[in-house]
Design a protein around this nucleic acid. Structure first.
Length: 773
RNA sequence: GCCUGGGUGGCGGAACUGGCAGACGCGCACGACUCAAAAUCGUGUGAGAGCAAUCUCAUGAGGGUUCGAUUCCCUCCCUAGGCACCA
């Protein structure tokens, strides 16, 4: 008997599967198949230069196990793969070394592809896509053009987050604690005109659609909070001669009697041109304050949370209900972008208003809040000043990036006709070749340095000279629709093969890390709904079911990082213990969704388990038979796996296989046919070893094309069951009794074991008796 | 501060719908093999008491519901992640 040698076994089968094109080209067969489909999607990966991480192994393996199991159960699995290949790291590397991002990206993808194949992940490589390929970004651009035509992509001038280090604009969500998400520099504010996508036009559906999907509760809650729907009322405040007319948004109309001042955000004050209403003698102080707040960084605004600033405009407004005169202040604790940017100050009931009033010695009025009934009445009787209103925290999506390594925004600017979309037949707008990738110092994209032959073109409207947009798109745009393209990867003249899309989508299971859940999911859902409304899709939600994998931490329990020196390299593990051991170990570490620390000792335990299986199978002989206990255990294990795998409970699946092997080893006997059944249930977890043993057992076709074993329920039926006996809820003893014994019989037998007077006896047939004394 | 998870042996973790807490693995201890070590195999392993059968305690803390609670309810503590002046 050969000793277990994973390297030899795995490399042998890897080559064979590759040659046989096992599970490749599935889109074609799926289009004709009558079988039930299952679209398993793994989160788009960024092909980083450092190669595959053991964390990737976990989530890819988890999906692979499920997919292999489903295939064995007669389903058609669609299991595609692709790369989120545009992005900053490759570009920053290019700035440093001068090596073109396309070169480093291509190399990184080659490494990833080799590593993933080596793990035995059964992706359909025919679907492989990369966002940096013109065949892909042609359609990213095409979607942008559709958005533009539908009025959902627009230019907007406004304050944006600016990273002085990366020299680029950051979306709100890329600013973490006032610092750039990537480089950690302090973010400052800068005014630029850029492209935005009107994601807010779908805000209600983005909220209500969450009811249709099976997602973790926490994820749904985060989406909901991000959209931030809030229902309340608008209140009109005017000054004496009605030259100033402001609306406040409030969710607490019941506090209207407590209003002692009104506060407006600096942005809105400027926007409304209210400086004209300020008396000459106060103009200086107001302008000084406005100036200061426009130059505040995010960081400074944050510090202001505790120490509020503001300035009195000396404009007097009137409470529309009480007719009391109240002052209008400007303060940057009021956000310009939320609600109306104007807030009524109720210092007695709102902490923020309270601290503001205290600081500036504004009056504080103690009041009783109104009842819901009184509020409803106010809305009716004073409809000229009060009206119901709903606001959202969600903002439109700023997608312009002053960067090279991204999809060019397919727009041109003509002096005469303004912004025009590049005609669809001219797509893609190819990325120009550059040698210098640094952004210009005034914040323009490096593409500004492209030759004039690229930069200038003709206006599609008037035929005159037009300049191309030099900004590229946020990479979130690329990744918002990749899952829609996989099945149609080879379509040249249309974004989707409509029939195939109908057949394969939506995604049945999306496995994605918890870090990108808010934005990526929001954007992907928005794109889906938009393309549906354009007539390209017929479903509302792209991801019917979603689960998250946890993080694999270093042996020290901390996040793996090069600087901490706690990184485990999957290549080394595969070399030493084999891909099967790595796969099974990572699945055994604990529940998929939790964070888990790496422990090489435990991995060795798994290696031992696989070797025991290997040795047991190879030492089994045709003449052996399966003892009753072993046969029962085997079928219990088949049953357990059949239930656990669809629930992604792989740790308990593996534990039950180990129990089965333990018993099998003790009895040291199993029939040839039963050995095959065991090898089959191991196949999704350890595909290489199982394939090898399957052939050793005389089979000719791949085990991965075989049918999942059926639990023999007959074997599991017991004649007798064990009854647990408790006294006052504490375990005392147990006994066996016929399976169909009546309640009375069970009670009688239980009471016979004790010489006590029972007050009450609880009998759960087939399970237990609890005697209360 | 708010939202959402989580807290079970030395460690990772099991426990269906309220019904035997600690499956499985690691580690550890002892034993076998070995000149020896490694590897491998076997036995044991929550804490405490007892020669023993067995008993007591134990699922972050405290309380409640129940014949019975790791599981349900209330209060609190710790921890991870997210949001954070959102009116």
């Amino acid at each position: 008997m050969n000793p277990y040698d994973p390297k030899t076994i795995e490399e042998k089968w890897l080559a064979k599967w590759e040659a046989d094109r096992l599970f490749q080209g599935t889109a074609k067969t799926l289009s004709k198949s009558e079988k039930e489909k299952f679209y398993a999607l793994f989160a788009f990966a960024y092909p980083s230069g450092s190669g595959l991480h053991v964390g990737h192994v976990e989530s890819k393996t988890a999906l692979d196990i499920l997919v292999r199991f489903l295939r064995m159960n007669g389903k058609d699995a669609f299991f595609p793969v692709g790369w989120d290949a545009f992005g900053l790291p490759a570009e920053n590397y290019a700035i440093k070394t001068g090596i073109h991002p396309s070169v480093t990206t291509k190399n990184a993808i080659t490494t990833f592809r080799r590593q993933i194949k080596r793990l035995g992940i059964s992706y359909d490589w025919d679907t492989e896509t990369a966002t940096c390929h013109p065949e892909y970004y042609k359609w990213t651009q095409w979607i942008f053009v559709q958005l533009f035509k539908a009025g959902l992509a627009y230019r907007d001038k406004g304050w944006v987050n600016w990273c002085p280090q990366d020299k680029t604009v950051l979306a709100n969500e890329q600013v973490v604690n006032g610092e750039c998400e990537r480089c950690g520099s302090k973010v400052i504010q800068k005014e630029l005109e850029q492209w935005k996508i009107r994601i807010t036009s779908y805000q209600d559906e983005l909220l209500s659609g969450l009811n249709q999907v099976d997602w973790p509760k926490a994820t749904k809650t985060q989406q909901e909070n991000w959209i931030g729907k809030s229902e309340g009322a608008l209140v009109k405040f005017q000054n004496g001669d009605t030259s100033v007319n402001l609306e406040c948004f409030t969710t607490r109309l019941d506090t209207i009697y407590g209003v002692t001042f009104v506060v407006i955000s600096p942005e809105k004050f400027k926007e409304y041109g209210l400086i004209d209403q300020v008396e000459e003698k106060h103009k200086d102080s107001v302008n000084t304050y406005l100036d200061a707040s426009f130059h505040k960084t995010e960081e400074q605004r944050r510090v202001g949370e505790k120490n509020k600033t503001g300035v009195d405009t000396h404009i007097k407004l009137v409470n529309p209900l009480t007719k009391e005169e109240i002052p209008l202040w400007i303060a940057d604790y009021v956000l310009g972008g939320y609600g109306t940017g104007v807030v009524m100050g109720v210092p007695s009931l709102d902490d923020r208003d309270g601290s503001f009033a205290k600081k500036f010695e504004l009056p504080i009025k103690e009041i009783e809040t109104l009842s819901q009934k009184e509020v409803d009445n106010l809305l009716k009787t004073h409809s000229e000043v009060f009206s119901k209103a709903t606001t959202y925290k969600l903002r439109d999506w700023l997608i312009s990036r002053q960067r090279y390594w991204g999809a060019p925004i397919p727009m041109v600017f003509c002096e005469k006709c303004g912004w025009q979309a590049v005609p669809e037949e001219q797509l893609p707008v190819m990325l120009p070749e550059l040698e210098d990738f640094t952004p210009t110092d005034d914040g323009k994209s490096p593409i500004e340095k492209a030759p004039d032959s690229w930069k200038y073109t003709t206006c599609p409207e008037c035929g005159g000279k037009a300049k191309r947009e030099v900004d590229t798109m946020d990479t979130f745009v690329d990744s918002s629709w990749y899952f829609l393209r996989y099945a149609s990867r080879n379509e040249k003249d249309q974004i989707f093969d409509k029939k195939l899309t109908e057949k394969l989508l939506p995604v049945d299971l999306y496995l994605i890390g918890p870090e990108h859940i808010v934005l990526h999911l929001l954007y992907a859902r928005f794109f889906t709904k938009f393309l549906r409304d354009q007539g390209y899709l017929s479903f509302d939600e792209p991801f019917m079911k979603m689960r998250h994998q946890g993080m694999i931490l270093g042996p020290d329990g901390k996040k793996m990082s090069k600087s901490k020196g706690n990184v485990i390299n999957p290549d080394e593990i595969v070399e030493k213990f084999g891909a099967d051991a790595l796969r099974v170990y990572e699945m055994f570490m604990g529940p998929l969704e939790g964070d888990k620390a790496w422990d090489t000792n435990s991995l060795v335990g798994i290696y031992r388990f696989l070797r025991r299986v290997h040795d047991l199978v190879l030492s089994s002989t045709q003449d052996k038979s399966t003892p009753k206990t072993v046969r029962k255990k085997l079928h219990l294990t088949i049953q357990k796996l059949s239930e656990d795998i669809p629930k992604l409970k792989f740790n308990t699946s593996i534990a039950s296989m180990m129990e089965c092997v333990n018993l099998w080893e003790t009895e040291n006997s199993m029939s040839h046919e039963d050995v095959k059944l065991f090898v089959q249930i191991l196949a999704p977890f350890a595909p290489f070893l199982a394939e090898d043993l399957w052939h050793e057992l005389g089979e000719k076709n791949s085990i991965h094309l075989s049918s999942w074993p059926v639990t023999n329920k007959h074997i599991l039926i017991e004649d007798e069951v064990e009854i647990v006996v408790q006294v006052n809820g504490k375990l005392r003893t147990r006994f066996m009794i016929a399976k169909d014994a009546s309640k009375a019989e069970i009670e009688k037998q239980a009471l016979a074991l004790f010489d006590i007077a029972a007050k009450k006896v609880i009998v759960i047939p087939g399970k237990l008796v609890n005697i209360v004394v």
